[in-house]
Amino acid sequence: MTMTPDTLIPTKPVAVTVPPRPDHPPIIRAENLSVRYGDHRAFDQVTWTIARGRITALIGPSGCGKTSFLTCLNRLADLVPRCSVAGTLDIDGMDVLSAATDVIALRRRVGMIFQKPNPFPVSIRRNIALPLLDHRLCDRRTVDDHIERTLRAVGLWGEVKDRLNQSAFCLSGGQQQRLCLARALALKPDILLLDEPCSALDPISSGVVEDLIVSLRGRYTVVIVTHNLAQAKRIADDAAFFWLDGGAGRLIEHGPCRSVFENPAHPLTRAYIHGARG
């Protein structure tokens, strides 16, 4: 938050919408979505669709509602006291915000990785087994196969296969983050929400995790919040720019990554990308 919004906002910001291309059908549709924490508005009136099978990056300064947007998608916002969500949100035909929605089924389909790796305080094996068994995705006889397959998918199998029964906290930060990714992938989700997944990691671990995310393209819909614009540019197909305006976050611009970064339509986007770069 180094720029002063007053001097940069020429007119009321208007979302510049690029219609979804037919070969990228939307999986997430938000309409007039707003989140408030008590009196504080996290973001206001976001109307947007996110395409299936693509990597979408959310960029913008801190406190403009990007993480809050993510936590709407898997109803994790429910956990925050005095948080209220308004508007409509539809994931693959499921009305996410409805009280009747089965949040457990929703959260199986929409996995999430946090900034700080947060493995469960149990063994490596049990970190993966716990959600698998709890969702009844496999039984006790086949669970070890699932664990191996999942850990191979995140390249962790070779590193941990001899110490599956050790506490997950014995792993390095990067390994823990990959374990968390494996835990999410084990549930065979459709959508993965990544909240600055690399920012707490050293550069090498960060690179490993980034490569993993790229490898998910096509098979999963990935929505990633990142402050690292270079990373967003490297890995994302689509990008969306959030900005804090009048005390609430707003979606300023979204579209294919290249157009947002190289030919931003809105002056705020241009200023942010140039400011953050220079």
């Binding site: 924490y37 809050s68 936590t71 429910d78 956990l79 925050v80 006291p81 700080k116």
Partner: peptide
């Protein structure tokens, strides 16, 4: 939102 209290009953 990382340091906010969690409301367990609503989870």
């Amino acid at each position: 939102m990382h340091d906010q209290a969690i409301s367990w009953h609503a989870a």
